[in-house]
Amino acid sequence: MNRPMTLDDLERLVGVEFPVGEFTIEGYEHWLTTDAIDSPPLPAGVAHPMYAYYAALGGMGLTLDELFAMVGSSAADGPMFGEAALEFREAMRVGETYRVEGGITGAARKTGKRAGVFDIVSFELRVVDSSGTVAAVSTNSFIFPRRTA
């Protein structure tokens, strides 16, 4: 069981950098993904634009479980997506490997009438190709219920 996260703990998360990771868009995974998300046909070799997200989250250098633990939560607590922003700078390619860098950019505690106490944690991830060009930027926020906060 995770130790309850105090407001100070939460605010100290802002600025924490994730380990640098990498992500390869494997052909078979791309096929399965585009099938699962009902993608329309794409030009040969071009990755679905959602790989700006999938590569960012998949290659961010820590797992979602580790991210949830970092903010004092776990998958069993039912964390939910809040907002997501994608910036597409370069077309991503199937078969390419991308470096992923970034970290936590925001954290706030809120109280809702129905939801009770919950935390919103935001993080930015940059997806960088082999030439050093940022191909995409993915900014996301998760909502963490704090039933015991």
Binding site: P43, V46, H48, P49, G82, E83, A85, F88, A91
Partner: peptide, 10 residues
Amino acid sequence: PARIRALKVR
């Protein structure tokens, strides 16, 4: 797909 520049959703 290359013509999509940005997307932001809640």
